[in-house]
Amino acid sequence: MGIDDAKKEIELVNAMKKGICEAVGIVREVGKGLMGCAHLLRVEQTERVFTALSEGIKDLSHLIDFIKELKSGMEHLKGSNVSMEPLLCWDRSLNVFEEMLSAFERKDWITLSDLIQYELHPLLIEGEKGLSDLKERFQEA
């Protein structure tokens, strides 16, 4: 690896570390927001709930895009032995996402709430922990 490559790798790692730091906070906020939506969806289906839900899902989708970028960045880190295992739960969230979409389409708000509360939210907690672990591993590396 040349000096330029090493420099780029350091820049990439720093960008990833910064991104992870920001993402951890965002995951927590998104999780909180979606849980609020899940509780409300069971009792009211008003514009404010759907607006909040759509914002939460948009944020979540940005997070998933970021995780994809993160994974691709990690693949570029040739010399790194940091495992991608902490990010695996994000893949599982994609399946939940699909179920959520299906529930949304058939206006089955209880199932949608269940999916957010009992499936997605634990994954987000796990995902947040995974990101924190990853951040530590990067620092150790």
Binding site: R42, D108, I110, D114
Partner: peptide, 9 residues
């Protein structure tokens, strides 16, 4: 039908 009336959890 497609509507769940109570939480499955």
């Amino acid at each position: 039908g497609h509507i769940t009336l109570h939480s499955i959890y």
